[in-house]
């Protein structure tokens, strides 16, 4: 974007070719439409939209990375629960917070590695592998926890580090209830956006997703790259569990159920291709925000014919719509 030498038209064209273009245009379009909804442009709504997107957002980063590499991780939601349980259980036990954090990242990471190794060693599609392992992980969690729900009312400083209130903002701007989880999410998004676009590993991810055969011929270690992507997805899922427990101080077996599908939907809205080789982390973040924003907009609309318990359908319609629009923009570019 800094190349000012390029002629105006090609510059626009090249921008449209970027994977962020479609989602961003959709986002702005819907934002414009929703801005007419009463109470939408208030700090309470805006901070609500952002907060609602943090947990899904964290998982979406890993999922998007995998989708670019041409793989799926349906076990992400289960790993989020694993992370939440380990982190919550250990901090409640009085274990050192750092140990709790590390366990909540390492164990989901190892389970992610297990997903990846199963995939590369058996050749079973990752969709099937992780479809199976998500049940295994949740089942194991059931045994580990004894089926009980975890909850505490104690307040440990580390909870504020990961998902505390940012009171200084709320003090400045009324109703701006942003939380520290947002900073962690943004940090992770920009870290992986950098890794994906500016490092050799990132190149490899795109390469193995786009054309594994060619990538292999170029000397890319396809298997190792895939396993690393699965580990990243596992660690980020565990971290989502950490963020969750830090604010809500509660974890149960069903924690994160369906989170992986929302993440895949966000990634798709954000421009990732189900077939791999294309996508962007920032785009995925836009996707998550878009879905969150829509839900808020629909509830705020308070339409008599969409009862409060059925806004999901509208969100679903829009996910499909956004994906179609993305494809259309991509094909025009």
């Amino acid at each position: 974007m800094t190349r000012r030498v390029a002629a105006p038209k090609p510059r626009l064209r090249s921008w449209l070719e970027s994977p962020v273009a479609g989602p961003l245009i959709t986002f702005l379009l819907i934002f414009f439409l929703l801005s007419f909804v009463p109470n939408f442009l208030t700090m309470r709504s805006v901070s609500g939209i952002v907060n609602a997107a943090t947990l899904t957002g964290m998982i979406t980063v890993g999922i998007t990375l995998l989708m670019i590499a041409g793989e799926f991780d349906l076990s992400a939601g289960a790993l989020m629960a694993v992370g939440a349980f380990l982190y919550g259980g250990l901090t409640m036990n009085g274990s050192p917070p750092l140990v709790a954090l590390l366990m909540a990242l390492i164990i989901p990471g190892l389970l992610g590695a297990f997903n990846g190794l199963l995939l590369v060693w058996t050749g079973i599609p990752s969709f099937i592998v992780t479809l199976g392992t998500q049940f295994i992980y949740r089942g194991a969690l059931w045994v580990y926890s004894g089926g009980i729900m975890l909850q505490t009312v104690q307040q440990i400083p580390i909870y504020d580090v990961f998902n505390g209130r940012m009171d200084f903002i709320a003090d400045l701007i009324k109703d701006a209830n942003f939380r520290t989880a947002l900073l962690w999410l943004l940090g992770v998004v920009f870290l992986f956006q950098y890794i994906l676009t500016r490092t050799r590993f990132g190149n490899h991810v795109f390469a193995i997703g786009g054309n594994p055969g060619a990538a292999k011929a170029q000397g890319v270690n396809v298997n190792r790259t895939k396993v690393i992507c699965f580990i990243i997805s596992g660690v980020l899922s565990g971290f989502a569990g950490v963020l969750l427990f830090s604010q809500y101080k509660t974890a149960k077996i069903a924690t994160g159920a369906g989170e992986e599908l929302k993440a895949i939907a966000s990634a798709v809205v954000g421009g990732a291709l189900l077939t791999g080789g294309e996508g962007s982390i920032v785009g995925a973040l836009i996707g998550v925000m878009l879905i969150s924003m829509l839900r808020t907009g629909i509830i705020l609309l308070n339409l008599p014919f969409i009862p409060a318990d059925n806004f999901e359908a509208v969100v679903g319609v829009t996910i499909v719509g956004a994906a179609i629009l993305n494809n259309w923009i991509r094909s025009r570019a």
């Binding site: 609500g48 939209i49 907060n51 609602a52 997107a53 943090t54 947990l55 899904t56 989880a181 969750l244 604010q247 809500y248 509660t250 069903a254 924690t255 994160g256 159920a257 369906g258 989170e259 929302k262 969150s292 839900r295 808020t296």
Partner: peptide, 8 residues
Amino acid sequence: DDPAASQT
């Protein structure tokens, strides 16, 4: 099941 989304 997502408490953050639920809160919002």
